[in-house]
Amino acid sequence: MNPRVRASARDIGLDVLSILAVGIFVFPIIWLFLTALKPSGQMFEGPLAILPHSITLDNFARIWNAVGFQTAFRNSLIVSTSSALIVTIVGLCAAYSLSRFRYRLRSLFAGGILAVQMLPGIVIVVPLIVILRSVGLTDRLAGLIVVYLLIGLPIAVWMLKGYMDDIPAELDEAATIDGASSLQVLWQIVMPLMAPATVAVGAFAFLLAWGEYLFAVALITSTEMKTLPLALQAAFGQYSIDWGMLTAGGVIISLPPAVLFLFFQRYLVGGLTTGGVKG
């Protein structure tokens, strides 16, 4: 065999191996999707009966019409969208301050926000819930939104600052000389230049709130206030033998983050690996 053929055979071999490795790795997710599409009659044919013989959307209809699921979907949408919007706007302003202004406490603030990034929820859950209870924010979506600001904000500030530092400051200086205010510079010059990154950061804040469980379970008690993770947990307790319905619920919860992430992968992977993480 000549070397070129051998090299390309090797490439194909490695491609096949890569597909196999990643395929086995993501098998649980493939299993979840396939199970959600299975008719009830095929659900318990055995541990290796993974592929459905025929597919159905019945499971999705059942979970969608289960008690509380649509309300939970709406609640999750409200909480995640509001916190993502606030995080993005507040984060843009903070990033702008850290990136473009020089003042005494700047590095203290920057370090402080980075330190909060490393603060795990479990460490502050008790005092935070007690505080929120004393101001009447338990069992209310507003309380969850406040908590999710903290979860999304530090990483948003750091990612946005990273992108903003790459935009030459000469642009804002020119605009300032032309009489633009700082706010105008941020909204009309800087932000449009990093619009895709800004949207990506907003998407990230959205998906952090979307799947959050600890504070949701600690704060929310009534059925009407439940977010999707809590609704799925309630359904699991109630219909534990209906794997089809529950896997369909799992797919519904997983889809928005997966789609957002694949869409913004380019922006998020870089930011995540440099800025640390909050999972």
Binding site: V22, F25, I29, L32, L207, W210, Y213, I253, P257
Partner: peptide, 12 residues
């Protein structure tokens, strides 16, 4: 595709 487990919500 590899990143899917990372972005799938913990509850799922």
């Amino acid at each position: 595709a590899l990143l899917l487990p990372w972005v799938t919500p913990t509850i799922v």
